[in-house]
Simulated scan of single mutants.
Amino acid sequence: MTESHELDGGELADLAGMIPPEIGNLALSNPLDWGLALGVSAAGFAAKSLSAQEESGVGVRAFTRTVMDQWGAAAGGETVVTVAWELAANAIQYALCADVPAQQPGRAWLGLMRREEAVICAVTDSSPAPPLPRSTAPLDNDGRGLHMVDRLSSHWGWSRSSSGTKTVWARVPTTW
């Protein structure tokens, strides 16, 4: 179970600056509960900020695995871990890479939402580029991510917000 502590005014102000614009102006609760502010039960929503330093995927996989364990996934948990990492890896590569101009720092977030028979994995990032599956040789180390997402999920897609961010999502069948 995740530990929480009371936040003081300075910590709340710091957190307010970290909330991605696509989530909107949320009322910060104490402890911070983005799921409730989004109208999603807190027990069924988890989010993680992504950074370029996570390019190995250890943090993203560990976060997703922990959430799946806490939610009691009976089957499909490792598939959710794989899909979440593939979506996050694209955001890290294209929105948080060194090529992003300093005046436009990249931001990316992973969100997991528990549904009755599935988990929705969604990654929002600041890259304007649409997610396009690349045609690649089967043994290439790069370019297979969206092909894997397509195979492992029942549905996937993407949308662009009016602020220019995009969200790529996938629905992964899971049992509890």
Rank of each mutant, 00 (worst) to 15 (best):
M1I: 12
S4A: 10
S4W: 13
S4L: 05
L7N: 09
L7Q: 03
D8K: 07
G10C: 12
G10F: 15
E11N: 04
A13W: 14
A13I: 04
D14M: 12
D14N: 13
D14K: 11
M18F: 14
P20Q: 04
P20F: 06
P20A: 05
E22F: 15
I23P: 10
P31T: 00
D33T: 04
G35L: 07
G35D: 01
L38T: 04
A42T: 11
A43S: 12
F45M: 06
A47K: 07
A47G: 10
A47W: 11
S49W: 15
A52G: 06
E54C: 10
G57A: 09
G57L: 05
V58R: 14
V60S: 07
V60T: 02
A62Q: 11
V67K: 05
V67M: 03
Q70G: 08
A74L: 04
G77K: 01
E78F: 08
T79R: 02
V80Q: 03
T82N: 08
V83I: 04
W85R: 06
E86Y: 10
L87A: 03
L87H: 07
Q93Y: 15
Y94R: 01
A95P: 08
L96H: 12
C97Q: 07
A98E: 12
D99Q: 15
Q103I: 14
Q103F: 14
P105L: 05
R107V: 05
A108R: 00
L110R: 10
L112R: 00
M113I: 09
R114T: 06
R114M: 04
E117C: 10
E117M: 11
A118Q: 03
C121L: 02
T124H: 03
D125N: 01
A129Y: 13
A129N: 10
P130Q: 07
P131M: 00
L132I: 08
T136H: 10
L139V: 09
D140S: 13
D142C: 15
G143N: 13
R144V: 15
R144E: 14
R144W: 15
G145E: 01
L146S: 02
L146W: 07
V149H: 00
V149F: 03
V149W: 10
D150Q: 11
R151L: 05
S153A: 01
S153T: 00
S153Q: 04
W156R: 02
W156K: 01
W158K: 06
S159N: 13
S159I: 12
S161V: 07
S161A: 09
S163D: 12
S163Y: 14
G164W: 04
T165D: 11
T165V: 12
T167W: 08
A170W: 03
R171S: 11
V172N: 08
P173F: 08
P173N: 04
T174F: 13
W176H: 03
W176T: 11
